[in-house]
Amino acid sequence: MPVKVARAEPEFVPGVRHPLERWLRTDRLPHIWCSGCGLGTALSAFLYALDELGWDPDSIAVVSGIGCTGRVAGYLKLDTYHTTHGRPIPFATGLKLAKPDLHVIVFSGDGDLFAIGGNHFIHAARRNMDITVICVNNLNYGMTGGQLGPTTPVGALTTTSPFGNFEHPFNLVHLAASAGATYVARWTTLDGRRLQKAFVEALSHKGFTFVEILSPCPTNYGRRNRMGEALDELKYYREHMVIRHGADPKDADILPGKPFLVGKFVDLEKPTYLELYQTKAREIGGG
């Protein structure tokens, strides 16, 4: 990058605050994520959404599993749970059932939610459990050194697929939609304001809602797949993403070097688990 010389002399100002600071445990910053990791961008889009919603922070709980994405829980000045690997959805389900007025959000990685935790995901979606699941999909297990996961694209190089992945990966948009999610969107970390809108919509929507964020993992995915630096991963998104709201989830596969779909795929109303439970309880005279 060409080095230019600053034209204006900056001033030094102590005590200034980043606009998102009220949501962050600033004593833990800077965070541990690598240079160019998309997780900080995904987190900040989520916090702009919380700003926009204007909810009482005490009415929000964020649950994470294990992984680089799982670290989100530790940086939020909110009630958060950093749970065991794969289990944020069961924890979130318990929270929601015990305290139905809480806004419960799961923020976790593709491996956590769809490998070890895949069973929990499909059943929470099937039941239309009233929680929002946010998945940062970096196409691999970032934290443990870049192993192949259920979303790793065909042909991709990982530490456990050194000759290229030959397995069929999950299309998360299609999986969420077929399992019963009532709101499904996918964006990339380049889409800050669209992501904010998707979070606002998903969090305000009744029932099981799902937002997938494609995010660069330069340390373990980008470099190994000769995508270059994080900057090049973002340029790849810019060149390959196609916005198509209401597209058929089946068409949302992610294939290396091919265009991929982003947008809002599902937005529908359906009775939630709690509503059905209450109806049944009344029916049998217990409610």
């Binding site: 200034v16 605050r17 980043h18 962050l24 910053l29």
Partner: peptide, 20 residues
């Protein structure tokens, strides 16, 4: 917090400010 104690650089731009 640490963030508040740190000094940021500030530039004036036509409609406001940029902090780093």
């Amino acid at each position: 917090s640490e963030l508040q104690e740190r000094a940021a650089k500030l530039w004036k731009v036509p409609k406001g400010y940029i902090y780093v």
